[in-house]
């Protein structure tokens, strides 16, 4: 991605400014301002329905926004600046931007007709047109890193939920993204499988990957996040160091939420 002239500041990977979004008459995002620095791990907490997923999906333009700007590595996502207004990009241009933004879904969304390895190499070979042999070698390395070197040729349905989610992370990683978005990556997992996925994410965080993680795993947020952001009713109501926000919440909504998840 080319760094454009209006690049806010070096070291900023994602910047949202005044992002607003409605579904019909329901305003789901009411002006989100947020900055995520390069290498930062940001955990997004909040009640169900507070707009976390919607915001995450706006970052790679799976959802359109009504107002505001979202930039990833300085580049405006999904729209082009015209004199005084924004024009939505064409499908191909948006696809080109998404190459740099990985996403991991709650329900994994692996391609069920492809093996783990095929899932991982599909993007680099089919979309980025990289050399097949190199990609396959890299994919083996990534699958090993997420602890699945035994399962390269397994189909998703032959894998446990935790294994599927790790393949999904490998699939995102294989694109060498600048940023990975996680939408409740462990919420659909059996409790005993959660830690395998969180371990992989912790490893990624330590390797310097920029991550935005929507999660209910407060323990993970406290331990791994550089910053915790708390959303309620489409707004960011509190953010800061995990120890402060989780340990000593100032907003009543945050307190109410934490008292529910920390039982």
């Amino acid at each position: 991605m080319t760094v454009q002239a209006e690049d806010p500041a070096p070291g900023i990977m994602m910047q949202a400014a005044g992002v607003r979004k409605s579904f019909g008459t329901l305003e789901v995002l009411k002006g989100i301002d947020l900055v995520v620095r390069q290498g930062e791990v940001m955990c997004l907490l909040g009640q169900s329905g507070s707009g976390k997923s919607t915001f995450l999906r706006c970052i790679n333009h799976l959802e359109r926004i009504d107002y505001g700007r979202i930039r990833v590595d300085g580049e405006l996502i999904g729209y082009k600046e015209r004199g005084g207004y924004l024009r939505e990009m064409h499908e191909q241009e948006i696809a080109r931007q998404r190459v740099h933004i990985g996403m991991v879904f709650q329900h994994f969304n692996l391609f069920p007709h492809m093996t783990a390895l095929q899932n991982v190499i599909e993007g680099p070979i089919g979309v980025k047109r990289e050399n097949r042999d190199e990609v396959v070698e890299r994919a083996h390395g990534i699958l090993k890193r997420v602890g699945l070197s035994e399962k390269v040729n397994a189909y998703p349905r032959q894998l446990s939920g935790g294994q599927q989610q790790r393949v999904a992370i490998a699939r995102a990683l294989a694109m060498r993204p600048k940023l990975i978005l996680f939408d409740e990556p462990t919420s659909a997992l059996d409790p005993e499988l959660v830690s395998d996925v969180l371990d992989v994410m912790r490893d990624l965080a330590e390797s310097g990957m920029t991550m935005i993680v929507v999660t209910h795993e407060v323990g993970f947020a406290r331990e791994v996040a550089d910053r915790v952001v708390f959303m309620a009713d489409g707004e960011i109501v509190e953010q800061g160091k995990p120890a402060d926000v989780i340990g000593n919440p100032s907003h009543p909504q945050t307190r109410a939420f934490l008292s529910k998840v920390l039982v």
Binding site: N60, E91, N109, F111, G126, R171, A172
Partner: peptide
């Protein structure tokens, strides 16, 4: 979800349909 996953790795509409 399949479409979204494919889009998230930057697939074009045509490729998404084919692959």
């Amino acid at each position: 979800g399949q479409t979204e996953a494919a889009q998230s790795i930057g697939m074009s509409r045509g490729r998404l349909l084919r692959r």
